[in-house]
C-alpha cells in the first residue's frame, strides 16, 4: 500500500505492507534510527515520536495509519545544527545516562511543555509516565524538563 507523509519536514512516499509498524518504517525504510525499539509492548516509550503534534508510541501504530500525517522524530528537533532547547536541557542537566530511552524521553518531554509551559514537578512526572528509564532514577530527567521550562522551551 502506498503512503505519503511528511517526516521532519521532508515528504516521503513509500509502498509498505499494512502490517509494517511505524517504528520499523522509520528505522528500516526511512533510515531514522533515533527512535528506538525497546519493549515492543507500548510500555517503555523509547519509540516515541510526534505524529500530527502528538506524542505517540510508534511501535503501536502501523505505518499506514500515518498516511498523510506530519511526523517528527528526534532527528527533526535540531534546526541547522542547533539543538532544540529540550535537547540542550538534557545535555546540561545530564538527563541521559546510557541514552537508550533519551530520544523518547525528549519527545515526551517536549509535549509536556507544548501543553503546559510551566509544569509542576508532579506534572512533569505524570507527563513522563509513558517512558521508562533504567539508569537515571528520573531525577535528572525531571531537572532537565524543569530547566527547559525555565529557559522557555
Amino acid at each position: 500500500m502506498n503512503i505519503n507523509l511528511k517526516i521532519n519536514g521532508k515528504t516521503h512516499s513509500d509502498d509498505v505492507e499494512p502490517r509494517l509498524l511505524l517504528i520499523h518504517y522509520l528505522r528500516e525504510v526511512v533510515g531514522l534510527t533515533g527512535p528506538h525499539v525497546g519493549c515492543e509492548t507500548s510500555l517503555c516509550g523509547a519509540c516515541t515520536v510526534e505524529c500530527d503534534g502528538k506524542a505517540v508510541k510508534s511501535c503501536t501504530m502501523f505505518a499506514v495509519q500515518a498516511d498523510g500525517a506530519n511526523v517528527t522524530t528526534i532527528e527533526g528537533l535540531a534546526v541547522d545544527g542547533k539543538l532544540h532547547a529540550m535537547q540542550e536541557a538534557f545535555w546540561n542537566e545530564h538527563g541521559a545516562q546510557c541514552g537508550f530511552c533519551t530520544p523518547g524521553m525528549i519527545m515526551a518531554s517536549k509535549q509536556i511543555l507544548d501543553r503546559n509551559p510551566h509544569p509542576t514537578d508532579e506534572e512533569i512526572r505524570m507527563g513522563l509516565e509513558g517512558n521508562v528509564c533504567r539508569c537515571t532514577g528520573y531525577q535528572h530527567i525531571v531537572n532537565a524538563v524543569r530547566a527547559a521550562a525555565k529557559a522557555g522551551a
Binding site: A55, E129, G130
Partner: peptide
C-alpha cells in the same frame, strides 16, 4: 487511562 502517548491515540 494508560499514559500520555496512549491517551493521544
Amino acid at each position: 487511562v494508560g499514559d500520555p502517548q496512549v491517551r493521544n491515540r
